[in-house]
Amino acid sequence: MKKFLDDADTAVADALAGLAFARPDLKVDQELRIVTRAGAVRPGKVGLVSGGGSGHEPLHSGYVGTGMLDAACAGEIFSSPTPDRILAATKAVSAGAGVVHIVKNYTGDNLNFDMAAELARDEGLEVEKVLVDDDVAVRDSTWTAGRRGTGATVIVEKAAGARAEEGGDLKAVADIGRRVNAASRSFAVALGACTTPAAGRPGFELAEDEIEIGVGIHGEPGRARGPMRPARALVADMLDAVLEELPASDDPVIALVSGLGATPLLELYVVYRHVAEELDRRGVRIARNLVGNYVTSLDMAGASITLCRADAELLRLWDAPVDTPALRWG
């Protein structure tokens, strides 16, 4: 394993220390591994907390700032943070209007966030949970833990963050988050496995001409292994999977192409070219796009495609000003 690490056990803490140096407008609590905005939450503003395992950077700490999250809880790599820390983050950003938890649908994240929410309610806080489950590689059935939360998380955090910033109440902020999730679907392929610092070697081996189809963002194998093919063919198949489950509508889409951590931007733009051409051919209009590394899986080679049906209100919230380490405009 060759990585820029001092010690595999302190990777998360060391990265947070770097973030603190890079962004003086954020506050990093090293002991609890919570990243918040440096200033106090505006009284009456709904607080937004997300979090999860580390290793998906810039998710979630990279989305803390004006127009997006108020706090992010960084767990160990690929492991949910614990309830006491989520509770501390919830209390830190509570400004009298309630707090929304944005939770990716994984067993561990659900359990820890639910426990934290229960503890927060015991202390008199109002907490709403927005569950993100956009990954169509997982069938939502009694045979699985349900679809995973992946790329749509960025769009949920952006839209809910904008709604909270403009003064939406707890229900309004949670509603827009849920609406974005319901309107979003994702699919990812991996060209190579990632290496967690703790394991020190790749999670699975792929031959030169093999890929993993339908992977998540935790280094686990996908639903199937298949042959490597030209980008155009891979993207067409990925879009087939996404569009099959994307709600039918005349609304345009926000298209997100995210690298999984070890794929050059050049290749991501090759992917996006085919996303744009293929969607045009299929009569789906792209209203906004994002191409880059937004929801990653350490150093996994691969890409995910997320489409979100966006009506006028959602586009307005998407365009609203945002100032975070990973998203900044307006």
């Binding site: 309830p83 006491d84 994984y106």
Partner: peptide, 8 residues
Amino acid sequence: ISSVGGAA
């Protein structure tokens, strides 16, 4: 609960 994380 406060030290393991994840689901376990």
